[in-house]
Simulated assay, not measured.
Amino acid sequence: MRIVVSTSSRTPIYEQIKTQVRASILSGEIAEGQFLPSLRQLAADLRVSSITVTRAYNDLEADGLIHGEHGRGFVVLPIDAQVASSALRTHVDDVLRELVAAARRARLSPPQVHDRLDEMWSHDE
C-alpha cells in the first residue's frame, strides 16, 4: 500500500490517509484479513503525528472497513463486492467532477482533456 500526503492540500492529512486506505481496501489491494501498518509505523513513514493516523484508522473502523484488535493492530474486514464497486465508482465520479472544474478553470476543451487523459492512461500502464 502506497500512501502519499500533501501538506499543501486543503484536505486534512487524516482525510488523505483515510481516502487512500479506503481505496486500497475497496479495490482489493489490501485483502480481507490483512493487517494495516501499525499506527506508529505509518505515522513514522508519512512523517505525521500518530494522532493523525489514529483519526484516519478510527474513521475507517467506524465505516466498517477495518477492526482494531487489541495488541495486534487493525485488520481489514470482509467487504461486499457490489458495495466496493459502487464506492469506487462514486469516488471516480467525484474525481471527474474535480477534473472538469479544473479543466474549465484552465480553459481546456473536452478534446484537450481527453488527449491528456489518454496520454496519462498510457503512461500509467
Rank of each mutant, 00 (worst) to 15 (best):
T54A: 11
M120P: 07
Y57Q: 06
R116I: 12
A62K: 06
E69K: 08
V100W: 12
L46S: 00
S50R: 04
R89N: 15
K18W: 05
A62M: 02
A31P: 10
V5N: 00
L99G: 01
L77N: 14
D118F: 11
R89I: 14
L88Q: 12
I30M: 02
R10I: 11
A81F: 04
V48K: 02
V100G: 08
V21W: 07
P111N: 04
S9Y: 03
R104Y: 05
R55E: 04
Q82W: 09
Q20P: 03
D80C: 07
Q16M: 10
R97K: 09
S85W: 03
H67K: 14
T19K: 14
S86V: 07
L99P: 04
G73V: 01
A87Y: 05
P78F: 12
L77H: 14
A44T: 05
E98F: 02
T7Q: 12
S8T: 15
L108N: 06
S6H: 11
E61W: 00
E69M: 06
F35L: 12
V48L: 01
I66N: 04
R97P: 00
N58G: 03
D124A: 15
T19Q: 14
P111D: 03
V76Y: 06
V92M: 13
A43P: 07
R105L: 02
D115G: 08
V100A: 14
V83I: 08
L77G: 15
P111H: 03
L96K: 02
S6F: 09
S9P: 03
P78V: 07
A101T: 14
D45W: 07
A87V: 00
T7H: 13
L36K: 00
E98K: 09
A62R: 08
G68I: 01
R105Y: 00
V100F: 10
R104W: 04
A101C: 07
R40L: 13
T11E: 12
S24M: 09
G71Y: 03
S9I: 03
I17A: 07
H114C: 12
A106D: 05
R89M: 14
I25P: 05
E15L: 10
E29Q: 12
H114D: 13
G33F: 02
S27M: 02
P78R: 15
S109K: 10
D93C: 09
P111Q: 06
D63K: 11
F35A: 05
I25V: 14
I30S: 00
V75R: 14
P37T: 15
G64A: 06
L108Q: 12
S24F: 02
I25H: 06
S122K: 10
R116Q: 15
L26H: 10
T52N: 06
T54P: 01
Q82G: 12
R2G: 08
V53Y: 01
D80S: 06
G71I: 07
V53I: 01
L60D: 00
E119W: 11
S27W: 06
S9E: 07
R104D: 11
I51L: 15
I25Q: 07
Q20G: 02
Q82H: 15
A44Y: 08
V53T: 01
A43T: 04
D93F: 11
Q82D: 15
Q34P: 06
S8F: 13
G71Q: 02
A102S: 12
Q112D: 15
S27T: 11
I79R: 15
A81N: 03
L96V: 13
A103Q: 08
L39N: 09
G71K: 01
L42E: 08
A44F: 10
A84Q: 09
V92N: 05
I25W: 05
E29H: 08
I17E: 04
A102E: 13
H91G: 11
